[in-house]
Amino acid sequence: MSLNSEALPKSQEVTAAPEASNQPWEPKIVGFACNWCTYAGADLAGLSRLQYPPSIRLIRVPCSGRTNPQFIIRAFQRGADGVLVAGCHPGDCHYSTGNYFTRRRFLLMQRLLEYMGIDPARFQARWISGSEGPKFQQVVTQMTEDIKALGPNRKMRDVE
């Protein structure tokens, strides 16, 4: 189950053009973005043409409180190098209290993952509001850099 850092993640091997093998390794970050704030913030980053590394794949959820810790475990098991959970700032949740529960749950989850031996830089939770396009850009860029330094995630994977 070893993965040397020059080999590409599976999807790229199947679909990338031959030239793609010259690309340096790009981490695969799965992001859970709340529809009302973070997803809107990401859209705003797009509207403002702010550039960031193509490492992140956002999954839209109605509220960050919808994100089940089991999704995080599954993401790592299926080969994610990093996971981001992002939602509205506490007090601004479109559904009034969802992100207060998110906050508690993911504080525990992050510590539990760290306890299991996963580097805390691989799992991040952030508050990104709908007007914070630059913050979204900065979070993704920083996370990509941090995870690039750590290399591909070999822990918890159940796939090649």
Partner: peptide, 15 residues
Amino acid sequence: PALGQFKLDDPEKFM
């Protein structure tokens, strides 16, 4: 239970 409630000033150190 702790996860069934919240406080407005819960810590959010890494967020």
